[in-house]
Write a protein that binds this DNA or RNA. Structure first.
Lengths: 212, 212
DNA sequence: TAAAGACCTGAACTGTGGTTCATTTCTTGC
DNA sequence: GCAAGAAATGAACCACAGTTCAGGTCTTTA
């Protein structure tokens, strides 16, 4: 044999894969997963439909990878925001507030993507990814609550249940069909009351609702 | 023409329609909407696939009607429970508690159906029905909150946002993939903390969490 | 019982979109 | 430049489930 896999070919392949993912994400974030057909993604990436299958074993895997990419970035941003608070001092209210604030801000900025990531009906394999990320968010909240409970800032309660409720409340308030956020003029107008709701829900008395 | 539509034929048709809906609901409540194919529903109802189309214009309409049937019953039960509290006296905490309790109890009893009604990916037409019902729940909560706010029991806040959050919290805590309820031994073990969370979320201080 | 219309049957049809594959084009190392 | 292997192409293929329809059956009224 004469042909060999080399740095150049590998990076070329990685580039193609990246192009495909970027194209898929672009479609998803403007029109949702349902319009992200193999043909559409291929076209957007400037390749043939068949070429998709040299980089991904199936459409489901392509979309799952796309989901991971987008959701991972979102989660990392929220996680970082929470961690940044930690750097200064441990304060449950602040950490939860940071979580709500960053999540909300980002969801408002990219509402279609947020909708796709949170509630759009998707292929089972993508749904599995979604489950993973929702669990990550719940675990993040749960961790905050556990720390708060042991520190005495948060009343005794099942942190798992409370965390699930908080995640559900944020999700429904922001991207669910029930969300009234379209009527809100600024991000703060959403984050402030939503933060108040989340803090109260876990039993933290909210003193000053205005903030920053 | 000699053939005429008569009471007998009409009731026969109504019966068939009913059989189809019942069959569809049975399938949905055990295996979800995804397995409710036209063929499967027809078979379960004891008719041919073609006969379905004499009673429903499309599969989507059949499933939408099925959804309405099941979701309508659930909502009515919750609504009745809330109204029953009203009969005695107006008390926001009691009304919200009744809502949480009945919703939870029923969801726990039929978890698969609850999942199908709340979060299973479905046809757009069915999704539209779901939206309607979610709005009904939100409106129910919103009404309770408005009354509470004007009565001074509940602090000033956007009742729409708070209602959406409450509905989201309940949904996620009960049937979402994050739900830890499988670990709970009895319905009360779920309703008590969940009620506490919901009441606190809207700003009602929870004094005694034990209850009844 | 006959005519007329509606209903029922289930096999055939259809539309959509994921997947495959024979062929062509590239890439690599000599 | 050439052999060998990989990747790309895009039209053909296929699977699946919703929908249709020709033919048979049932209901109704006269």
């Amino acid at each position: 044999m004469v042909y060999r896999e080399t740095d150049r070919t590998r990076s070329r392949a990685a580039q193609r894969r990246e192009r495909l993912l970027a194209a898929a994400e672009s479609i998803v974030s403007t029109d949702g997963f349902s319009t992200a057909t193999v043909a559409a993604v291929a076209k957007a990436a400037g390749v043939s439909t068949g070429a998709v299958y040299t980089h991904f074993p199936s459409k489901a895997e392509l979309l799952a990878a796309t989901f991971r990419r987008a959701a991972g970035r979102e989660f990392a941003a929220v996680q970082d925001a929470v961690a940044a608070v930690d750097d200064r001092r441990t304060d449950t209210a602040r950490r939860l507030s940071a979580l709500v604030e960053v999540f909300t801000r980002r969801a408002l900025r990219g509402r279609r993507l947020a909708w796709s990531l949170l509630v759009e009906p998707v292929d089972p394999l993508v749904e599995a990814e979604r489950l993973t990320f929702r669990m990550s968010y719940r675990d993040l909240v749960e961790g905050i609550l556990r720390a708060g409970i042991s520190g005495g800032e948060v009343p005794e309660q099942d942190p798992k249940l409370a965390a699930a409720a908080v995640v559900g409340a944020i999700g429904e308030a922001l991207v669910g069909p029930l969300s009234p956020i379209a009527a809100y003029p600024t991000p703060e107008a959403v984050t402030d009351p939503l933060r108040a709701i989340c803090l109260r829900a876990v039993g933290i008395a909210v003193v000053n609702e205005g903030s920053r």
